[in-house]
Design a protein around this nucleic acid. Structure first.
Lengths: 338, 338
DNA sequence: CCATCAGATGTTTACGTAAACATTACAGGC
DNA sequence: GCCTGTAATGTTTACGTAAACATCTGATGG
């Protein structure tokens, strides 16, 4: 900066003013400074800026693995929204989802140059007590029910589940089986709870819960079980990958979808429309989730907007070929199929 | 820091020494300083550190969308490897893959606090001439043939393609059709080239190229065409998503896989083993790619290691149920099926 | 008993920037 | 023509850290 000032024949402060687009600088001077900057290849030093201003203009994102569609798409939207606001995004991966690891990420974070943090993770791993965040670092959490502790943004998973289960009931199915996610997952828990509640509401029997671990492979294994049950005519899978495995298992066991069994997924991954058959599923708007996260975290930084609370992004049922009325024998009971 | 020093009754320099694990500090003093740090909740200011040291300990990653498995998995590996080396990763998403956008990302980058950059992108979008990177910022590129300009790390796509095509020929297929990726894509180009070369080498006719855009939907559309061609008994799809769409199209048109048509994919996405039928595909070790990227970029920063050149990560053919010998009518011609 | 030396700790300084304050120049009013 | 006020520009300073250098302490050997 001093060099630029010297070359342009001005003070370094004037260079600073030009660099920051400050008003009171003559056009002539401005041009001279810009020319000098260009000639010397001047670039503002962000470390010095951060030191002076106390702001890094960076948002940290802590996430456990980028293996799920949702996390990735959310991350992408966060990065895009943040960029639009002039913020950079720093990634803090947590290799294995143990509390130790998470704590490690937060420890690294403590030394990190971020103004705010967005956590894309089941909050129960986040053991608030042991985490000491730098003061003034704001946190927004995705995928959690910790709305009373943090600001939370999430998709309306209960609503999506309800729509999925109702769709199957409305088609005339006696009840709906559920291929749930892994035990520890909060998202899985919520979908399972909503499934139970919707069935209970409609006065249907609740079949035993079958669990997978989100992977297609686990869906396949669970599917082999489900295929063996004659009475199972409709399955709500907690995500599309497991639904894929389920479709394979049903096919291998000779049960046709949707003629014999209806299958519905969750997430609407890009491939869902190309499954055999194309999968009816619940679409989640992760782009919107990411956008809202950034919005929320920036608002918190500016000290306006609520400290905590949950924002839900609506989900949408996407109807494809994998769902239909149940086979004739077990015809509609109370709710007409129409 | 000054506060800590005061509380501990030492100089700020001693605090700095403790903070950085410097040797010549009495255990007693060290404990006092640590106690003071804890009491005051001291955290080193990374901006000041960066200003002093000239290093940000951050690697920037520029990528066009996180929509492909490969990019995401590579990114994840980069983040993990970087964390292990004490580096943070800053994400620079490029919304649409135009040169303007890419240039924009680099412009943002110029002001960004990074010591090095890894570009996960087709390099032809990267128009080296218009990009002025901060001096001393090292670049490593993934997915490109720019080994003469940059340090490049990539999977051995040609080798993987060769293995895939040879596998089909060895099964007895007359020739192999190719469902290629989009025109602009370098990865697609390489796979297509290797497909042609392998067929030519084996003295087979090269069927007309069919193109998709990586999506399952485009694979489906292309598949409807291919399904109509009796003579097509083996298809090599440039990625697993397109292969998925292809499987659906073949199924709908009543052509059985693998009895009538063999299908092979590329990437080995986690779901590939749960397709109908499970997909034979080429596995790519993206974790290794990410690891090597970080290694390469750090080596470049330390000024040892080559300035440019390409490192290839081996690929591996994963044989599943979607490939088999061709149907009887068009029996093996020159290469015996064994 | 003192010179020497090494290890521990303190002091000064600079990294690049921008806020706060100081100065200069010039236009307009009297 | 001088005073006042304002716009443009310059000067000083501090942000938090760590390298370089300075100082102090106590132990060792002659």
């Amino acid at each position: 900066m001093a060099d630029v000032a010297r070359l342009a024949g001005v003070s370094s402060q004037t260079v600073s003013r030009v660099s920051n687009g400050y008003a009171g600088v003559t056009e002539e001077t401005r041009q001279q400074v810009l020319a000098a900057m260009k000639e010397l290849g001047y670039r503002p030093n962000s470390a010095a800026r951060a030191l002076k201003s106390g702001e890094f203009r960076t948002i940290g994102v802590i996430t456990f693995s980028l293996s799920t569609t949702g996390n990735v798409r959310t991350l992408e939207a966060i990065a895009t929204s943040a960029a639009r606001e002039g913020y950079a995004v720093t990634l803090l991966p947590v290799a294995v989802p143990t509390q130790d690891e998470v704590r490690g990420a937060f420890t690294r974070l403590e030394e990190l140059a971020v103004d705010a943090v967005i956590v894309i993770m089941e909050v129960h791993l986040l053991d608030a007590a042991t985490v000491r965040l730098p003061p003034h670092v704001q946190v927004v959490v995705v995928d959690s029910d910790a709305g009373d502790l943090y600001t939370v943004v999430d998709t309306d998973q209960a609503g999506g589940t309800r729509a999925a289960v109702r769709h199957l009931l409305d088609l005339g199915h006696e009840t709906v089986w559920h291929l749930g996610g892994p035990e520890g997952s909060f998202a899985a828990q919520r979908r399972t709870d909503a499934w139970r509640a919707t069935l209970a509401e409609a006065g249907r029997t609740v079949p035993p819960l079958v669990r997978g671990d989100w992977s297609a492979e686990s869906g396949y294994r669970a599917g082999l079980d489900l295929a063996a049950r004659e009475e199972c005519t409709a399955v709500f899978a907690a995500n599309d990958q497991m639904a894929l495995g389920l479709l394979r298992a049903l096919h291998e066991r000779g049960r046709r979808v949707p003629e014999d069994v209806s299958v519905i997924g969750f997430d609407d991954i890009p491939e869902a429309g190309s499954f055999l058959p194309p999968l009816t599923t619940v679409h989640q708007d992760f782009a919107e989730v990411g956008r809202l996260c950034v919005e929320a975290v920036l608002r918190k930084m500016r000290q306006d907007g609520p400290e905590r609370g949950t924002t839900l992004v609506p989900t949408r049922l996407v109807t494809r070929a994998s769902t239909a009325a149940p086979p004739a024998p077990s015809a509609p009971r109370s709710a007409p199929a129409r």
